[in-house]
Amino acid sequence: MSSIAESLTDGDYLRGSPFCHGGAQGHKEWWHFCVYGDGVDVLINFSLVDDVRVGAATGAQCGRLTLLVRGDAWHGEVLQFAPDAVRAPAGGHHFVFGDNAVRWRDGRYFIEVNAPSLGITLSMVMTPEAMPSLANNIALEDGPPIHWLVMPRARVDGTMTHRGRTHTFQRAPGYHDHNWGHFRWGQDFAWEWGFALAHDRTNPWSLVFVRLSNRAHTRALMQALFLWRGPYQHRVMRGGELTVRREGLLRPDTVFKVPRVMRLICPSTATDVPARLLVDGQGDGDRLRLAFEANDLAQVIIPNDRTRGQTIIHEVSGAVSLRGAVRGEEVALEGRGIFEFLGA
């Protein structure tokens, strides 16, 4: 087994909620996958969260599969699964929600989606090409810490049928992350989170940017720009090494929203997503400039856990440019990225 596969076997297991064993309630955990096909982008998110709604049974969890397909337009939905249709044991490496599954086996993720109600059938194999980065105990201001693992670069092979059209993925670029922890939707935090993959598959660079802040975006709790060269993490710029600037506002004519029923509650097309996100990094003689130019977006709208109102995850597709020099070596990447902006 390769060192990448070993790292993911050791690090990308499901943590599981302690709620059903008498532990704290409010655990959330998901595996997130993105694939860039030819003319189509696919986002797949398997999530398992404690059911904190009034009237929910003790220890109950909700299995949700978020599917977003971006071709000429966005399409998708959030599918919910009853507890008896969900298998995602703590310590294991798989989510099975009804006829949908993702399994880690032999150093690869096998992803199967069967969503006839959406006209989506998908069978893909994602082969990681970079070492994961694990971040434990990221502090939030008003609650326990959160944790994540990110693997920025993968090769994806497989097929997807979407509304009668079949897309074939051959060595398509892909991305994966895993998040878990105890937090509430509606809590005083937000994130900006994005990845970029080069148009040119021989380009060795890949990156992930993350910034956690309070919900009003007036105070950063942490920020980091992770840079990989080929399979290895090459440089991390953190905190004061980075200056982040948001320019303009993305003003789409229409906004695709899931779950679709949330259109009733959040009909607005106004967003606080920047038209451009600029990140300048400088430290120890290294310098990087990341520019993300937003093109369009879809919204995943989540009712807040304990208060009225919603949390909106904006999945923003755009162009990414990275320039600079690290350890005397020039860094240059032109590519695509999906950035998430959490808003209210």
Binding site: D51, R53, G55, A56, I265, P303, R308
Partner: peptide, 13 residues
């Protein structure tokens, strides 16, 4: 109506 809908999307039953 909006309050009703906000409750409807949260009420398990």
């Amino acid at each position: 109506l909006i309050a009703f809908l906000e409750g409807a999307v949260r009420a398990p039953s």
